[in-house]
Design a protein around this nucleic acid. Structure first.
Lengths: 240, 240
DNA sequence: ATCGTCGATATGTCTGACATATTAACGACG
DNA sequence: CGTCGTTAATATGTCAGACATATCGACGAT
């Protein structure tokens, strides 16, 4: 019997006050009206500004804080400050959310792999074209560390190669996209099921990619990365 | 002079109660202990469960709600329900965050354009290979609507073409990546500065891309999309 | 059987108070 | 004169209780 009530028009339902306040403040922040680091008015001031109680203001602030838009500290010099988000924390958050999407079956591991296969190879090409001394050094370091450590500890370090490779592009957005995807995939890979000799192959692949990058050969770096990821694909696919 | 205060050790600072509560509940939700759709205890019950006041519980709930982990409704049948996060809302949030990163100069418009240029063309190829009747229809619709409306209203619709194109790939993750990037770019494009004849060119480009997609010609779709985005590039680059 | 009303229950908001963290200013002491 | 505790001011964090309001099931009148 919702046919009577639901379908007609969308009534202009009044939103909760804290939602409206959060939206207004967010608009100011995102729109650039408030530079990063700027201090918002104190909770008491916001109360009088918006004409609401402190509870309402605080709930609005919690919303913004959990979206990384503000940082709140206590004390006399405290308050809510427009956050200076860095790509790293954003990437972490995004990773958690992606994991949730996968859990809810709104996103499949295949989707992740496909996107990875689409982005990382071109990123490797860019990295090869732009790699400087320091970038190459840190990339080499990830391989050396991986080689030294035992497979168990070195496990998570294998991903550092990919993360570092993408960071060499100098484009934080690419990092922002690759890192969460890799984080989810890493958590979805049961390492016990990976035969030991696989790790040697992976290391060899990394080595060849590194060579291409350090030689500035973008074409080869892209191709090798694509092959590498394709070879890795079967390690994930059996999962739901 | 932070050398004195900062570097020593990370003290085990007691977190605010609402943060702890939010974390515990989040763990339950993400860990799968609470299936999507499940109803959390009422605020009053959570108060007694955690031994805190309602304000504290509510602030924790606001945190979770703004992370799309729960949906809250009023009334006798209301409460907080574990949400089924969808890629769309995640993309919206991400768009806001990206805008902030750009404001903070941790991300440049060039970075956005580069990533877009890297992802959308291959996505167009995928779309061409996978497009079905309904997908093609909705893609055609975005073009028709754009043509009918005056430039002002049609302004935002131009982006719908790209959004729809990516959605045809059937990979929500690609949508999740492209949509926020396009949202930020859209807000950073001053339409007054775009000469009117540009819109005609853009429409023509879209038309050709559509033809390639509907013909299932992924190769051409990818190339045309790349050219299209490259042609668009100058419209953004003059901005800080 | 249908429609309107009422009541139960949940979230939304307000008020006012106290707790606590943080820092700046001050003053005592070496 | 500089250094180190102490204090006071101010901001957020938490609590308690109350009332407002949305929502829906159930009851009752028509």
């Amino acid at each position: 019997m919702k046919d009577e009530t639901a379908p007609r028009l969308r009534v202009q339902r009044v939103q909760a006050a804290y939602v409206q306040i959060a939206n207004q403040l967010r608009e100011q922040i995102i729109g650039g009206a408030l530079a990063t680091g700027t201090r918002l008015p104190s909770e008491a001031e916001l109360c009088t500004l918006f004409g609401v109680s402190r509870s309402t203001v605080r709930e609005a602030l919690r919303v913004l804080a959990s979206q990384q838009l503000i940082d709140t500290t206590r004390g006399v010099a405290g308050g809510s400050f427009v956050a200076a988000p860095d790509a790293g924390t954003v990437a972490e958050n995004l990773g958690g959310t992606l994991g949730l999407l996968v859990n809810a079956n709104n996103l499949s591991v295949d989707n992740l792999i496909e996107a990875r296969l689409m982005i990382e190879p071109p990123a490797a090409r860019l990295a090869a074209e732009r790699a400087g001394e320091t970038g190459l050094a840190s990339l080499r370091r990830t391989m050396e560390e991986t080689a030294q450590l035992d497979p168990d500890t070195g496990f998570t370090l294998h991903w550092d190669f990919h993360t570092t490779l993408v960071s060499i592009t100098g484009n934080p957005l690419l990092q922002l996209m690759c890192q969460p995807v890799n984080a989810v995939l890493r958590s979805r890979l049961h390492r016990e099921r990976v035969a030991p000799h696989r790790w040697a192959e992976i290391d060899a692949d990394h080595e060849r990619i590194y060579d291409a990058v350090s030689a500035g050969d973008g074409e080869t770096a892209e191709r090798l990365t694509h092959e590498h990821l394709t070879a890795l694909r079967p390690l994930y696919e059996r999962m739901a």
